[in-house]
């Protein structure tokens, strides 16, 4: 008992900070300092060659009032996030429910559904996507084989190119699926059994048991996926290079181009901070709404 007491009260600042030092050093050098510098740069005109020139909120004003491409990139990114996140989560949940049954071979199927998530972010996959949905690719040759000949490919058409990127994202539903699957397994079977006795069918059980019990997981998945989708870059850089006509120009790709193609470092930093604000607002709003729809068991269970 005495030892336990000592454990609770005793501080080992020296040892603590020694063991924490690699992370702490990195946090200060790679996160805190760069963030402060970036915040400062966002109020300057800076091209890497001469010293940053303070211009107040000039970059932000220019962004909101003069830069049409900024608005375009913002629009593209919102379209992407709002199309991708619900679709990916719906797929993830549907497949997780399919796999939360008692059949043979479940682990093999799970493997197949999960592999795309593992490799999805790689350049190799972006290359595959570019060729599959580009000119003469899989989609066009398949359509041609059934007698539908197309002049432009899915990627070449400004109106549809973004959806091939959404498809690439939905294809990677595996991680969300695994998270859903593990919380589906924690829903007590007795709930379903008593619902069945009360005459509930599949849909009734799904709406009244599965969904409420899953809301904490859904909430968690939603936040993760929204943050990730806003930060997407590789897809737009490799598969479409932002085109055609900037219709797949993701926010982060435009930010990258501003910094490293135009050496407009101050402007690019300002764009990065706007992204931080957008992501924070989304996260905050989701957290605010959670009282309305997320049911935590400790708060008295479902509904």
């Amino acid at each position: 008992m005495r030892l336990k007491h000592k454990k609770r009260r005793g501080y080992s600042n020296g040892l603590g900070y020694i063991l924490l030092s690699p992370w702490l050093f990195g946090f200060i050098l790679m996160h805190l300092l760069p963030m402060l510098v970036s915040l400062y740069l966002s109020f300057t005109n800076f091209n890497m060659l001469s010293a940053p020139k303070f211009i107040g909120v000039g970059n932000y004003v220019r962004m909101f009032t003069q830069d049409k491409t900024f608005w375009k990139a913002l629009g593209v990114t919102f379209t992407y996030v709002f199309a991708l996140v619900p679709l990916r989560l719906a797929f993830a949940l549907a497949i997780a429910m399919l796999l939360n049954t008692s059949h043979r071979g479940l682990s093999i199927y799970r493997t197949f559904y999960y592999i795309p998530s593992i490799i999805g972010g790689s350049i190799a996959v972006s290359i595959v996507w570019k060729q599959m949905f580009g000119n003469g690719g899989v989609l066009m040759s398949l359509l041609a084989a059934v007698g539908i000949s197309q002049k432009t490919s899915l990627l070449g058409n400004p109106n549809t190119a973004i959806y091939s990127l959404v498809l690439l994202g939905v294809w990677q539903f595996g991680s969300s699926m695994l998270i859903f699957l593990s919380s589906l397994k924690q829903i007590p079977m007795s709930l379903y059994e008593s619902a069945k006795i009360d005459g509930a069918r599949f849909w009734g059980s799904f709406v009244n048991i599965t969904i409420p019990m899953l809301t904490p997981t859904l909430f968690f998945n939603l936040i993760l996926q929204v943050i990730n989708a806003f930060r997407a870059f590789t897809e737009s850089y490799v598969v479409t290079d932002g085109g055609p006509l900037d219709r797949t120009l993701f926010y982060v790709l435009y930010l990258y181009r501003r910094a490293f193609n135009y050496f407009d470092m101050g402007y690019s930093s300002a764009m990065a901070w706007i992204l931080v604000i957008i992501i924070s607002v989304f996260t905050a709003v989701l957290f605010k709404t959670q009282n309305g729809w997320v049911h935590y068991e400790s708060k008295g269970g479902m509904n």
């Binding site: 963030m35 970036s38 740069l41 943050i227 982060v252 990258y256 990065a272 992204l275 931080v276």
Partner: peptide, 9 residues
């Protein structure tokens, strides 16, 4: 925090 914020510095 998105990594893009830190990248220029």
């Amino acid at each position: 925090i998105p990594g893009q914020v830190m990248v220029v510095p």
